[in-house]
Design a protein around this nucleic acid. Structure first.
Lengths: 212, 212
DNA sequence: TAGATTGTTAATCGATTAACAATC
DNA sequence: TAGATTGTTAATCGATTAACAATC
């Protein structure tokens, strides 16, 4: 049968990159096939969950055999949209913005920077790697000439909402939010937001340290 | 009644920093009291969930009145363990390590750096802010003299597991993992791990961009 | 063919939401 | 007192796990 019309939950989506990572490892180790059972042991989740998760998207396995590693890897790559490339801009070139700019891992997966912005006149015009920091006011005209797919928001908390609104008005369709402010309110059918709340994450860790 | 012996789920723990954030905002705006209903509207969750979440830890509200903002803020601060301060070290002083080092927000909440480490001889000995990058081999002796509570792991993926094991052997009790490698296997009763998988997060975002 | 392992349905578990008595 | 709102139990919803027939 293998219908693919199920509603896909956030929980499943968040596991996809993890599957992709493990399958990538298997590919690079030249492992040809893997069963849900064996993968479940490596990933420390249940085989049942793996089969359920994958089945939402299609029938990628074969009874009695398991999954072909390369083709499953390619399927998940496709599902995640990683057969395309994505153009990134950074808005807010503080320490975090600089670090993300120089982080090589993103380009390995097809995410490439096309511009960096800030509003601080002291750093606008300065060179970082191959880019010159542009004034944020030039963003709308920049976007007309250069399609950007994802904007990394790395401004200070107090400016987060205003800048995010400005990005959306300027036509940005996806914001990767590194500010410690929730931007869910700005999400819509066409605008996607993914939060990285570093401070929240750190607090979760110190909570665990205090559990008895 | 108000017993506090319920098992606390990860879902609840992950919401605590968010409550803390919103309550902090209310405190700084001098708002005295808030009902679960009003907070639910601001946070875009249900009032029922707020009451359930808070009740796990105690009876902080008052019928007919709601919650006192300041005392609820203080309670959550206490629950999260933020009445103490935490000593941080960074292991791996690449771009990300540098950025985290210079990120001011952590110290606002009582997280202070006490040392930074790397194994690359080209950068060991160099100064970053008030610290000199130390060789990672000197970590065990460092830890004997300077208690560190949390180690930020920001080395490359391929070294992640070995370095994490080394940290644990050296006595580190909490690892904030920025590598794109799962370290759950290393978790135990006494060793806590919190992952920040940036690439996974970015992939989730590009997945959303491709949903029809 | 026999063994292995999937795809998929059914059962279980846990988390969220609704409801309302208790009470400020 | 009457109104508001909590604390808490019960109902619902969704996600995970178990089970097994289908099939390679």
């Amino acid at each position: 049968m293998c219908l693919e019309n199920k509603r896909i939950s956030t929980a499943v989506i968040r596991r996809l990159p993890r599957y992709y990572r493990y399958l990538g490892d298997l590919v690079s180790r030249d492992i040809q096939r893997i069963s849900s059972k064996e993968l479940s042991q490596r990933m420390n989740i249940t085989a049942s969950q793996i089969r359920q998760d994958l089945n939402i998207f299609g029938c990628f396995g074969q009874q009695g055999y398991g999954y072909n590693v390369v083709s499953l890897y390619e399927e998940i790559k496709r599902i995640l949209g990683l057969t395309k490339t994505y153009k990134l801009i950074i808005v807010g070139m503080g320490n975090l913005g600089h670090a993300l700019m120089n982080h090589e891992s993103f380009s390995l997966h097809g995410y490439d920077y096309v511009g960096v912005f800030d509003k601080n006149p002291e750093i606008v015009g300065k060179q970082v790697s191959e880019f010159i920091i542009q004034d944020i006011d030039s963003l709308p005209s920049f976007l007309e000439e250069n399609q950007a797919d994802i904007a990394i928001l790395a401004v200070t908390k107090s400016k987060a909402i205003d800048v995010a609104k400005f990005l959306i008005e300027s036509g940005v369709k996806a914001i990767w939010n590194f500010t410690n402010k929730d931007l869910q309110i700005l999400e819509s059918e066409v605008v996607h937001i993914e939060n990285v709340h570093l401070t929240d994450s750190l607090m979760t860790l110190s909570y665990k340290l205090n559990e008895k």
